[in-house]
Design a protein around this nucleic acid. Structure first.
Lengths: 212, 212
DNA sequence: CGTGTTCCTGACCATTTGGTCAAACATAAC
DNA sequence: GTTATGTTTGACCAAATGGTCAGGAACACG
């Protein structure tokens, strides 16, 4: 319902760009670790090294910072799925997808938690994105996977639920990081190498067609 | 650090029990859908059909309601894993575990989201529980799984990460319910039947030993 | 019925929080 | 230097929120 006039129409000055980025970086930090409601503008301001009114000079509201983050990150967030190539070797394509998603959990846990926080709460600020951007992409890639199944190139599997499985398994290592590390504390200091081996094994066994 | 004297030492009156339960029920509703910080005592009071001061009569603080919920639910939350039986048939045991966890995602999504919300935010209110209660249980069951692997009764797998996989795959259908339903809106009105088929297939293929 | 205990509430309070604003400060252009 | 534009902040505000409290209502029991 709100106008999308967050960014000025004129080209950004250097100082604008710097502060804009500092604010979004700080906002990502705070929103991802406390949720939208749990984050305060003061916390973000402090993390960005700016004053609260100064934040409100660059963004009209706390809400605006949040949506700027979500929309700005969406593209890179969906990139790995977009890269799934219908003309590639099926199992290798999916394993690559899994590896890239797991790598994102390692490198961008804050982004993962930001989205998780949002969807957990019923995604009031994401309904549109889910239906308008994500759904078409998932439908398209589901079709690709279905074609692979029908061609006998991978074992039979429900395409949509396969995608859900990739998401849940990989994002788990970002979203539930504390739990994972606590439970592995005396086994592996860094869960990711073993996680990758585990997931590669899992999807390979799951998708390799019957030798029959 | 706080004393655990939430409950009075005297036996509860009928009215105490009723209100106590109504409050926790309402608190589960509100906490699970908005997170701790996002929930207000007023919202919980309204949902419970009581006045705000009345809630504070039964619980010393908002925080107390939250911890009462977490600790009260922990047992039933971990029951499925506890039920994993070392003397049972390995694959059937794990499939049963998966089915029970998925069933909990269907029947108790609020509880799932409550824990998810908590762990997502670094689990400040759960550190103790994770290390003291969950870790020993996971270690014990990991040992069971490792024994099955070494006996050749299931295919080689990292026990801890296998448990993580069960959690993430099953809880995903509760925690990300909105996303799942949105993406399946024109395919399946109820995601769970297909989810169960999918997960049974996944774990069967993953765990069935090589015919070699 | 009387009395002690439990239960409940309206009014109130202190703090936090998102957001505003006038004025000060900085910067670049002329 | 002057002027116009862009940037920053201290002071402030209204609303929301967790929590308190004195007293009233309901109940239990002799």
């Amino acid at each position: 319902m709100k106008a999308e006039r967050t960014k000025p129409r004129k080209p950004e000055t250097r100082i604008q760009k710097r502060n804009h980025e500092a604010i979004l970086e700080a906002a990502l930090d705070v929103f991802s670790s406390r949720g939208f409601r749990g984050a305060t503008v003061d916390q973000i301001a402090k993390a960005a090294g700016l004053s609260k009114p100064n934040l409100l000079y660059y963004f009209p509201s706390k809400e605006a910072m949040h949506t700027a983050l979500l929309t700005g990150l969406l593209d890179s967030w969906l990139a790995p799925l977009r890269a799934l190539d219908a003309s590639g070797e099926p199992i290798e394509e999916i394993l690559t997808y899994v590896r890239r998603k797991l790598e994102m959990s390692r490198q961008m846990p804050r982004e993962s938690r930001l989205f998780a926080n949002e969807i957990l709460q019923g995604g009031p600020r994401l309904h549109g994105v889910l239906a308008d951007d994500l759904k078409p992409l998932v439908d398209e890639k589901a079709k690709v996977i279905r074609a692979w199944v029908e061609a006998g190139r991978i074992a039979p599997v429900n395409p949509q639920h396969l995608i859900f499985s990739v998401w849940s398994l990989t994002q788990h290592y970002a979203d539930f990081d504390i739990q994972v590390r606590t439970l592995l504390s005396d086994v592996e200091p860094d869960p990711f190498p073993e996680a990758e081996r585990h997931l590669v094994t899992l999807f390979t066994r799951m998708l390799t067609p019957e030798a029959a």
